[in-house]
Design a protein around this nucleic acid. Structure first.
Lengths: 194, 194, 194, 194
DNA sequence: CATGAATGAGTGTTCATTCAT
DNA sequence: GATGAATGAACACTCATTCAT
């Protein structure tokens, strides 16, 4: 059986994903984890801490993977495509974590929110630099700010939790590929512009 | 001075947008609106009702506008482009309403949630039929399901509330145009495929 | 159609009987009566007033009838029997009123409660004097205080509302006769005592 | 000092008896018990639960005692007499509990009300079977349905709370004996009937 | 390490009553 | 006579957190 902190994180992830942070009582979490409240407060300083932990671990993982994909030697379009597919796939593979991440970001206390925002900005900037690299290389259009393109794509990823279902017709990888295809297609230089 | 129900809706919209439904006390709403709790419950059956009202009015407005844009006589690509710009612009023009809409949809009680979901599905389907029309006309690619394209774009729109600021460098219309450009570009038929 | 005050009394009687005074909102009463709150407060000073009215009218009616039965010229046992039957029958005929009377007596405000208690005491004493008359005449036992006999019998009557149903096998008159029979039987002088 | 749940039950019993369930605020109960609301809700799921507990414990006790008295080997008239005295005495000994029982039965939530009604029916039926036993043995009259006799007597017992006072001239046992005497006298076979 | 009793501030909601119209 | 918007105090209940054991 998993350790107490792990069981707590798992329980919290499931519940936060299903009902949203504010709708989950600490009592529910410890009940689902099969421990007592005292135990929870032994390992975690607060309910916020649980959210922070869940929130951070996915973000860290995706940042690492983005770094990996971005730093390859393939052409930039291929690297961006691979990174785009990957963020969709890992978001689906960790669906509950991702849903928590997508819907409960604002519920963190001020200090932790700042920390998370910084982390997210790093992720955003890493992604953006890939787009800018492509623009500099002349393979991506330049008439749309790279920044906006990143927001454009990440809205899509964030929205996954509101409609994607593993029972649906498409696998995570298929969805990821389609989205990456759409992204890359939208970045093709516009004909007739310099 | 606006009527009591209007003041309540305004206050609730501002607060729900800023802090999320669950973080706003009814007392805060009535204080901001300058009325008493009793007055609020005279006009609205519950806190949920306020959310439902806010939620519904933007959705109805956007549905009407989408119908208007979709039913024009211009080429389908132009109609889709105009509709895409419009949904961004109206989301920004009613930024607080949109933020409420984007982040608090799941907080409605079961019956109202069903109602809203049906309304949202209608909107989604109307948008999708535009994409399908373009696919049938041969001007949009067919290798990505129309459904997925709609999710793709609406994620983007939903995400606006998380980063857009009126104080930033781009106007709502500029952002809308860029996003519509990206959408249309991503839908161009793929070279070398039938 | 009945007058507004009558409709209000009827509605209040039905609702108080069914749910108890404290569980009925003034709004429910006026809705059932088909009038507005303002109208109610025009005719009645308070919700308490409605209860007082309902409460009092049955008590006055039963007091009058008791006076009538008690003051006849028949033997005292017959008069007591008739009075006992009558209080059962009128309680059943005005079942809702009686239930209000039985269960909501304590909910009156202090001044009206005193008034009602005085009225009830008069009723009680009138009944008791019948018993005492029989005791003096040697037809009723004297080893049980008349007072206690009256409490004994009125508990029975008050309790009607908790089990009697018009759909049951016995008519009000049948129940009344059985109860009066039991009362009279219990009052027969004990053999071997003076 | 008594345990927290005990103190809460005691306080609730006193207050419910004095003012009726709906007129007692949870805050009053916890104040009287010297604990906080949180503590109350730690031990009892709701205000209803308190009522249920109070209500049930007297009923259980009286049911047990009735079983004891009914199952003796004395003549049925003596057993019924003893049971009748006992229910009066225990109702007076637990006067507050009994008053709660008598006046607030209808305030329970649906599920608990059903449960209590079943328990009360068992009690009623146990008592009735004593009457029927006497009828079968030829010592009690048969012209009045046993069922009705039970309602007759229990109305009397329920009514105790509305007039009995320990400061009055009669002890509980004296009242019980008088009432039992009246009951037994009323059950004597009618002269001249078979 | 872990318990679970206890806290206390806060929640959404109800409702008898008033009063300007 | 009658309306219904508005009041404001009260209500039952929740919950993250603490702490003696």
């Amino acid at each position: 059986m998993a350790s107490v902190p792990e069981r707590l994180i798992d329980a919290a992830t499931r519940l936060f994903a299903a009902k949203g942070f504010d709708r989950v009582a600490v009592q529910e979490i410890v009940d689902l984890a099969g421990v007592t409240k005292g135990a929870m407060y032994h390992y975690f300083g607060s309910k916020d801490d649980l959210l922070h932990e869940i929130y951070g671990s996915l973000l860290r993982m995706q940042t690492e993977r983005l770094d990996h994909f971005a730093s390859g030697s393939a052409p930039v379009a291929e690297r961006l495509h691979a990174a785009a597919v990957d963020v969709v796939v890992t978001s689906v593979d960790n669906f509950d974590q991702a849903r928590v991440y997508f819907r409960s970001a604002d519920h963190l206390a001020e200090d932790k929110r700042r920390e998370m925002r910084a982390e997210r900005r790093r992720y955003h900037e890493r992604f953006r630099s890939l787009v800018e690299e492509g623009q500099a290389a002349g393979v991506f259009r330049t008439d749309v700010p790279a920044d906006l393109t990143v927001h454009y794509f990440f809205g899509t990823v964030h929205h996954l939790g509101q409609w994607y279902s593993a029972d649906g017709p498409l696998s995570a990888k298929q969805v990821g590929r389609h989205f990456a295809d759409l992204l890359l297609a939208s970045l093709r230089p516009v004909e007739g512009s310099s």
